[in-house]
Amino acid sequence: MKKKNCLAAGWLVVVCFAFPLAVRAAESGTGDQAPPAYTERGADTCLKCHDEDSKFPVLSIFKTKHAQPADKRTPFGKLQCESCHGPGAEHAKEVPEGQKQAPIIKFGVNSWVPVEKQNQICLGCHENETRIAWQGSPHGGNNVACVSCHTIHATHDAVLATGSQPDVCFTCHKRERADFDKPSVHPVRFGQMACNSCHEVHGAIAAKLLIKPTLNETCYTCHAEKRGPFLWEHAPVAENCTNCHTPHGSIHSALLVKRAPLLCQQCHSQLGHPSVARTAGGLPGGNPSGFLLAGSCVNCHSQIHGSNDPSGVKLMR
């Protein structure tokens, strides 16, 4: 253990102090190169080939906010197609039949342009607001391309609509897709809630890319009645909702990770009923038990999220 900790400390020193020197050295070698040329007529040059019948139709871009010349922040307020796709004079040159056009910046996981470079183009305008924390975030740090989720040349970008967004996310998050087919879920598969209702996918303060700084604060945006603070707090509730609940789907009601009374008996072992093993002898047909059936523990301890009643210390009032 000691060896591992020393290693970690050494690593820290490297990370924090070797960076500046190394970065300066790495950047000092950058040489000047003649910049590639832009087309003579901008988008008019591009649209000569890229109409709706071409292999790469592009006209849907004109249904989007990117194609608004009056907004000088947008591609068509700047260098039109070449704002994003880069200087295109070489690409636009006619070539003998059978030869390929000179490459131009294209987007997608199969592009010749590295994902990091593609994303830099998008971030050139969009690294603001909630995307400030993109770099180094789980998506940004793992080089997820912006266009892996966003469809730029489309009237409606599926990931921006509540109903269609989850399917975009499920392309990679397959376990979550299965979770939402479980019996107890948030209303994602019903089209009433999207992944970004809870997650800030472009980077966040909180773990799991949550929209608020902590997990509980995220849950309170819809469940403010559980925020308190209560006179009688239930310690694991105030600490972390996921101590008892799982957010995406469960086979147990109310998205619980496990069924009462065993869920409660993971932490409660007092003399008397909390520590008694409940068997199927307590089911209908045997000796039906209120410790097991209907609401189980919450048949009495119904204020499980906290109580503000002066006599509510046991969360029964």
Binding site: V23, R24, I132, R227, F230, R317
Partner: peptide, 24 residues
């Protein structure tokens, strides 16, 4: 008598910043 969820308030100020220290 049960005391139902009490009315409550939450106020929060957040400052976020991103800075390109160098190209890398």
């Amino acid at each position: 008598q049960l005391a139902l969820a009490p009315s409550n308030k939450f106020h929060q100020l957040v400052v976020s910043a991103g800075f390109e220290l160098s190209k890398r």
